[in-house]
């Protein structure tokens, strides 16, 4: 399963009310490191199928969530579990860094 897109209006339904943990990638088209992160997140989305959903939120189009979670640098990925933030990774630091983050919410 590839990553899914999420917008401000869907955030509550798709992220906060999700039955399984959701990793949200805050990104934008003009962001170089976000392009590096994309294939890695796609891979992780396959590897953690059924245990985790990975969603992408475009910060230019969804400023509500961007402001709410005080994202001021991209890529920022935030892991949500049971409607709460359980961890975040600022910047792209490779697959292992994402896995460390995912382990905070997924066994």
């Amino acid at each position: 399963m590839a990553t899914l897109d999420v917008s401000d209006s869907e955030f509550e339904e798709k992220v906060l009310k999700s039955q399984i943990p959701v990793l949200v990638d805050f990104w934008a088209v003009w962001c170089g490191p976000c392009k590096m992160a994309e294939p890695v997140l796609n891979e992780l989305s396959d590897e953690y199928k059924d245990k985790l959903v990975i969603m992408k939120l475009n910060v230019d189009e969804n400023q509500g969530s961007t402001l709410k979670y005080q994202v001021m640098s991209i890529p920022t990925t935030i892991l949500f579990k049971g409607s709460q933030e359980v961890g975040r990774q600022i910047g792209f630091a490779g697959k292992n860094a994402y896995e460390d983050l995912i382990k905070k919410g997924v066994n």
């Binding site: 170089g32 910060v59 961007t66 994202v71 001021m72 640098s73 910047g91």
Partner: peptide, 17 residues
């Protein structure tokens, strides 16, 4: 405060300011 206002990459983060 890296990623919370501290940055080394203006092209990445300038639009947040």
């Amino acid at each position: 405060l890296v990623g919370r206002g501290v940055s080394t990459c203006a092209p990445c983060d300038a639009p947040f300011f």
